[in-house]
Simulated assay, not measured.
Amino acid sequence: MTPAARRVLEAAARLFYERGIHAVGVDLIASEAGVTKKTLYDRFGSKEQIVVEYLADRDERWRAFLAQHLDAARPAPAARVLAVFDASRAWSAKNNSKGCGMVNAHAEISDPSHPAYPIITGQKQWMLALFTGLARDIAPDGADRLGRTLLLLHEGALVAHGLHVIADPIGHARQQAQALLAATGECG
Rank of each mutant, 00 (worst) to 15 (best):
N104T: 12
S92A: 15
L134D: 04
H164N: 08
D111H: 01
K94G: 03
L153Q: 01
D141Y: 14
Q125S: 15
L128A: 08
H161M: 09
A105W: 07
L158Q: 05
D71Q: 12
Y117G: 02
I166P: 04
W62Q: 05
A116E: 12
A56I: 03
A160H: 06
R145T: 15
I109G: 02
D111F: 07
A64C: 00
L146H: 00
L146K: 00
A129L: 01
E60I: 09
L152E: 11
L55Q: 05
H69S: 10
A167S: 01
E60Y: 07
D137Y: 14
D144P: 08
D71M: 09
M102S: 02
A64W: 03
P112E: 07
S88F: 00
A83S: 11
S113H: 14
T121C: 07
A78C: 15
P118A: 11
P77Y: 13
D137G: 14
G156H: 02
Q123F: 09
K124R: 12
K98D: 00
R145G: 10
G156Y: 06
R136M: 10
S97P: 15
S92I: 08
A56N: 05
G122L: 10
A72C: 02
A93W: 12
G99M: 03
A83K: 05
G142V: 10
P169S: 02
S113V: 10
D86E: 15
A135P: 06
A116C: 12
D111Y: 00
A167K: 01
Q125A: 15
I170H: 02
A107L: 14
A139R: 08
W91Y: 13
N96W: 07
H114T: 04
R61G: 03
N96H: 09
A73N: 14
R148E: 09
P140M: 09
G99W: 05
T149M: 05
D111N: 11
A139H: 06
H114I: 06
I119L: 07
V165F: 04
L134H: 11
V165R: 06
A78K: 01
G162K: 11
H164L: 02
G171C: 09
E155S: 10
H106F: 15
I170Q: 00
W126E: 01
H161E: 11
L66G: 03
